[in-house]
Nucleic acid binder design. Structure first.
Lengths: 248, 248
DNA sequence: TTAAAAATGTTTAAATTTGTTCGAAGATAC
DNA sequence: GTATCTTCGAACAAATTTAAACATTTTTAA
């Protein structure tokens, strides 16, 4: 059974059961616990399910938690390590773009005291920075509930009015071939931000490296620098393509 | 039972009960007091509940202290009476503007199930409606912390791209002489909204009628209809100027 | 066809969660 | 004010869950 088929079945089972544990899933799908765990972790990072101890829950059950908050909780240490490095690149007076990714969101904690202007399409970023030293501009357009962000043609048009010194953006996958996104919405917003910034940083934890999602939307040259959490065998080919890489 | 499931149940129980004690929770969820305490502490640190001695209570019962929320709490009954009337004016398919006033904010509760598009510069309005039937567009521009809203030249420019069937707006004062605002920011945003809507409703509780704030920014003719909470001696002169007035 | 990469299984040490106990801090009654 | 009762959280232990490391198999691409 392929991992795709397995993940599909997991969602079906979860639809019926609300919650389910690793051992049951492993038995039902006749595979090992470890494989189920890997599946669940991946699905949780995509916001498809909520990871619990020993299993998973349907999304939407936790009243006050959005898909976005669940995404943020995944791989938190790696995200913070990346953001700590990213924050060192930001100097007082910078005008920076921040997109609506869960990694970029964590950057908020490291820049609260900097004297900068932040331009973002992410509502959680606004909420985090509204009481900080940074001044915040919000991109306008359609509100996307799942991503807690602003998207759409109007948003892209709006971005074109700004110019930033640095952009901090995420993607769903990166390989030596280029950059990948799960939806066109995200792809075009990323392109719009990148086009209006002098220097573009890709914040990307190591699980996304060498992962090709369904839509290839740009070449590696869109970014100047990749910040990630650890060296992996997949990095050298990317480095060879001319992307500067920052590691902890 | 996982901690996530337990926390979900705690929120459900709290939704019904407003407040609840540790012992009851421990019994209901068949676990120990200590585990419940750990759950409650974690949930409180995330802002999901409010921790009390011996238990927990719902959030939202205690006064949250942003300037905006305090404004909302003033004269609540009058505001709700006004908004109930305003909601009757809104039909499925409408595209409406809502500004960042505290009266207009209360309109959210009355339109959650309507099939409309809402265009606003108010962050609290977005937060209220993000899980509703209405689709939401947000105006882009500078984030104003005190008003929890978007302002500035970019915002006004952005508004000019939209056209609404109805606008629901507030002011800081109204007299037979015209409309008054406390800041130029608010004045220009109000003008920008009004200019791009076919029909403009002024939502204004009776304390603001016949009050002249520092800046007169428009004549009464900017609005077609005034919705307020009670008849006062100041109303007839305004009615005489051609403004339609709706009362409970 | 072969080599490289990805996915999966196994083992094991680390991390997380939970229950129990107990002294300290907090509330309540008098 | 004191005495009493309750609640709290720290510390520890037991059980469970997790993820890292490595071996093996399968898939993919050259």
């Amino acid at each position: 059974m392929t991992s795709q088929k397995r993940q599909q079945k997991i969602i079906e089972l979860l639809d019926r059961n609300e919650e389910i544990d690793v051992a049951t899933l492993a038995e039902q799908l006749s595979t090992s616990d470890m494989t189920i765990r890997r599946d669940l972790n991946r699905m949780a990072s995509e916001g498809l399910i909520i990871r619990t101890h020993g299993g998973a829950m349907k999304t939407g059950l936790l009243v006050n938690k959005t898909a976005f908050e669940n995404k943020v909780a995944v791989n938190l240490d790696a995200k913070d390590a990346i953001c700590r490095l990213a924050a060192q690149e930001i100097k007082d007076g910078d005008i920076i773009f921040m997109d609506c990714g869960s990694t970029v969101f964590r950057l908020c904690n490291f820049i609260r005291n900097k004297n900068i202007k932040v331009i973002t399409n992410s509502l959680p970023v606004v909420a985090q920075l509204i009481n900080s030293a940074a001044s915040v501009n919000l991109i306008g357009g359609e509100v996307d509930r799942d991503r807690q962000a602003i998207h759409g043609a109007m948003a892209e048009q709006h971005i074109a009015h700004y110019t930033a010194t640095k952009a901090f953006l995420g993607v769903d996958g990166i390989s030596p071939d280029g950059l990948f996104a799960n939806t066109e919405k995200e792809a075009s917003i990323t392109r719009a931000f990148a086009a209006r910034s002098k220097k573009n940083y890709l914040l990307c934890d190591s699980t996304k490296i060498n992962k090709e999602a369904y839509l290839k939307f740009a070449g590696l040259s869109l970014f100047h620098t990749l910040i990630t959490d650890k060296e992996t065998p997949s990095l050298p080919p990317i480095r060879k393509k001319g992307l500067k890489i920052i590691l902890p």
